[in-house]
Simulated scan of single mutants.
Amino acid sequence: MTDVTEQAPETAPEAVQDEGDIAADYLEELLDIADLDGDIDIESRAGRVYLSVESEQPDDLRLLSKSDVVSALQELTRLAVHAKTGEFSRLILDIGGSRDARAQELSVLVDRAVERIEGGASTAALPPMSSYERKLVHDLVAERGFTSESEGEGADRHTVIRRS
């Protein structure tokens, strides 16, 4: 099942449709190879393609929904899109609700960091994470009335939280 909605003005609907369709085809092939059932939903938000893979049997996707596996599959899917279009893809992949689960984990990390600051620490550094996760953390930190910055390079890039 594919559904493309909410096109950003700077992204042509055909380009979003193509990127989503290429990514969905790639993921369907991977699911077939692994002999797993899954429904793929495609949508576009702010010019970025979001793909969700769900199954009526949640255990079918259990191994694929681990954070590191989702990140790796997301990168492979981005490469597949790039190979077909020649364009860089910023698509986001969610398997079995893994993004929501990770967002909850990040919320707990931010809460603990805020507690350390409220307990007297001047800053609290979180572990390295992807740019997508750092963006979620920055939003969570701002909601709690604190500030945050990304520091470090490459795989060591992480978020540091401070009082406002």
Score class of each variant (00 low, 15 high):
75 E>A: 09
86 G>N: 12
27 L>W: 00
35 D>T: 02
155 A>M: 00
33 I>E: 02
2 T>Q: 14
146 F>P: 02
85 T>K: 05
16 V>M: 15
19 E>C: 03
37 D>E: 14
50 Y>Q: 09
82 H>K: 11
117 I>V: 03
117 I>L: 05
94 D>F: 03
104 Q>A: 15
134 R>F: 00
158 H>L: 12
62 R>D: 05
41 D>Q: 08
47 G>T: 11
19 E>G: 05
163 R>F: 10
144 R>M: 05
45 R>T: 10
146 F>Q: 06
155 A>H: 02
116 R>E: 00
42 I>S: 14
125 A>I: 04
99 R>P: 02
17 Q>K: 09
5 T>Q: 12
78 R>I: 01
27 L>F: 01
39 D>H: 06
85 T>Q: 07
40 I>G: 01
24 A>W: 00
146 F>Y: 14
98 S>H: 15
114 V>G: 06
33 I>N: 00
65 S>W: 06
59 D>V: 08
63 L>T: 12
109 L>N: 13
66 K>C: 05
56 E>P: 04
100 D>R: 15
76 L>G: 02
146 F>M: 07
52 S>P: 08
75 E>H: 11
155 A>R: 05
1 M>L: 09
87 E>W: 07
61 L>W: 11
26 Y>S: 06
105 E>D: 15
111 D>K: 14
99 R>T: 05
23 A>C: 00
91 L>I: 05
161 I>Y: 11
40 I>T: 01
143 E>T: 08
56 E>L: 05
24 A>Q: 00
90 R>F: 11
84 K>V: 04
145 G>T: 03
79 L>P: 04
97 G>A: 07
80 A>Q: 07
26 Y>N: 09
32 D>H: 06
78 R>D: 00
70 V>Y: 14
71 S>V: 02
6 E>P: 01
